[in-house]
Design a protein around this nucleic acid. Structure first.
Lengths: 240, 240, 240, 240
DNA sequence: GATGAATGAGACTTCATTCAT
DNA sequence: AATGAATGAAGTCTCATTCAT
């Protein structure tokens, strides 16, 4: 009576071998989530079928609905868990780095995340973000948490006087994430690719340069020569 | 959806005053497009029904398929036409303005467009942009054309030496449009609103400041101290 | 491509032969209603399947849903139409008859209706009457119209002074229809039968007798003894 | 239905104070029945879920099936037990009262029962009574027992010559219960209410009046004068 | 040029019941 | 005595698209 749904999986994925046994509630949930993430990653959310998940888990569809009220709920849970992992696994930026470097590193990290899981990214960007209930979802909170890294770096810089305060931080955040998202769409569409380095460096540079309190200091090298000479002269003259 | 229990549906077809006109091919297409745009604007693409379009036009669904192979094709055509209009109606920015001002004005224009047609915007952002065939659509070309305004302004500034060339223009464009898109999502979701002025001003400022070739010149005051002293000294010396 | 659903009907009912052609909207609706009534009558509402209806009509289930938003709506429509027919076909009671006879005849008619269509009756009694929305349905109105016959007869009798006014007419109506319903349940359950004549006569008698304004006149025989003796005596005396 | 996103469900089982008691077979059955009655009363039988019962009892669903072969069996048992209680708790009518008063009191009692437990009533009326197996259920027997009170009162009256015998007692019983049921439907539907006093008084009056053997006696005042005088005359004349 | 009746594939979901532990 | 994970059989409903007239 077990395994009626076999024989039609058709796709000898790796997940195919596990389970088939009676699992504890938590283990089953975990197994379903793993399977669902796989299906989502492979097929994209438009083609996501609960049947596929059941097949991979070697359980009946009914079992999925024992734990998830709705296909959409399952999908949301997958996205949330993934997002939470992403945040948890986020590499700590060395505190020693400068603001711009920190920005760049974080952006590069985001781009790596997108590159690794385009389907998950697409799902969140296209399905969840546009949902009227988005703000009440955990993904929203997680996203807030995730993007707040940028805000924090910038706020610190504002407080230390390193950058200006004449543009709202949320807007800067939007430029960062909007910019990286746009730079990424061709890849998400399955077409081209993007240069993590270039995008990260470019975004960080524009944001930082655009907000730097002391552009002279910020790009000291560019002006250092001129200023040095001017100051030398001034001193010479004044010292007389 | 149809009032089956009224017993009066569809039997007074003859007295419909504005219907049944046998239109020329072009007029019919135009009528369908107008109706479809209205439905799309009103209901959003998720709830867009071919039936509704037929009802508004007072034609049968079949007729729609005489002119549009697919619901999706119709929708795409609606989006394209709209986009083309938006471009055509785009107010010419006074050439006299400076780069930053031009940016700001254009961004403000974009935001006005979004505010006016959230459903159309959503459709393009969520449905078309993520379509694997996006790049071969006319919308893609139109979008390119539309956004090229920003690129052009920036390129001119690069060429005149006003701004630097160390960040690829497409990335700057992505920051502009990504930033404005992100700043706009809550509104598109039907929740909040956005300040056209603040967003436009902020984006333009960061982009411009971030790219300005002569930050010293651009923000003269930062060097003013040195120069003041130099001039004072020079005067002193000259006064000798 | 037509007739895909053939070959599984399994029940060579009479309805099976008709249709199979492209019908006009109204004809199709009519055909579906006929088929649905047949299925309802045959299987009862608990076992009513839209598939069966489609099979009988030789159409796809989708076609049914073109005309009826819901299975339940179809069922309700069937019940309503049936009820309307019942009312339309109701034999006019000869005006010449007395109140009690009119009651009896009408009750007998009701019982005949129940006997003829137990499934329809069950559906209305068990499904519709208990629906919270019952009062806003057309069946409710039809039922009101149907049962009002009893109320009317009684009201006339009240107004002519033939029967009393000390019990609310709705309650009398409830006794009539409640009584006949109860007397009918075994039959509706598929068990026994009922005697139309006995039930109709009994109900009419109790209601009439219970409400008659002049019981003495109505049952003259009870005073006959006294009067007989009086007349006998009178005759004796007169004979003197 | 289950709070999947809380991540805290079901892990504090140990601190449940009133749970987990391993009950004796009879106690467990009793507990289930109590819980089930509560759920039935609260939700109605259409929304009755075995899960709910298990939750209330703090047992697993499986345990329910140890004691009741079927959800329906459980429900039937609940109805039966309830009905038996109703009968057991039925207030004894003072023997001293007249027939009509006894009827009225009993009907009022029935109405009170309905008002108190509409869900149980609905279940019996809609689900059990229409079941083909109804006659072999204990509810049927209990119902017979319950309604026999009316039959008994009437039979006594027949035997004492107080009421006639020209309408079968079961039909009278059907009028009583059918009438009270109909008068009660709006309430059972959750809409309106009913007047216990009016319904009880009305039903009793019609039944009694309709069956009274000596309407003169029943409404003595109406005829008493006439009859007295006639009898007096007869005696006078005859006595001569 | 227009109609509009018909399609049809299948996704999602429910919940009483079972049975291995 | 109790658990609770797993089942699975259906049934409803949607709507873009087709094609005979």
């Amino acid at each position: 009576m077990i395994g009626l749904h076999t024989g039609r999986t058709g796709m000898s994925d790796t997940e195919d071998l596990k389970s088939a046994a009676r699992l504890s509630r938590d283990d089953r949930i975990r197994a379903i989530l793993v399977a669902a993430r796989g299906v989502l990653a492979r097929k994209g959310y438009e083609a996501f079928l609960t049947t596929d998940v059941a097949d991979v888990c070697r359980i009946s569809e009914g079992t999925i609905y024992r734990y998830f009220p709705t296909k959409r709920d399952l999908l949301i849970r997958v996205a949330e868990d993934w997002f939470a992992e992403v945040i948890a696994l986020e590499p700590k930026t060395p505190r020693s780095q400068g603001t711009q470097e920190q920005l760049k590193h974080f952006i590069a990290h985001c781009l790596a995340v997108v590159r690794k899981e385009p389907s998950l990214t697409r799902f969140i960007l296209l399905e969840l973000r546009s949902d009227p209930a988005y703000r009440s979802m955990r993904v929203f909170e997680l996203n807030r948490q995730f993007t707040s890294k940028v805000v924090k770096v910038l706020r610190d810089a504002v407080e230390s006087g390193e950058i200006r305060n004449d543009v709202p931080l949320p807007l800067l955040r939007d430029m960062v994430f909007g910019g990286l998202e746009h730079a990424t769409w061709a890849y998400l569409r399955g077409e081209g690719d993007f240069s993590t380095e270039n995008v990260a460096a470019g975004l960080a540079r524009v944001i930082y340069r655009g907000m730097a309190a002391h552009p002279a200091a910020a790009r000291y090298d560019e002006l250092a020569g001129v200023i040095d000479r001017l100051e030398a002269i001034a001193e010479t003259l004044g010292g007389r």
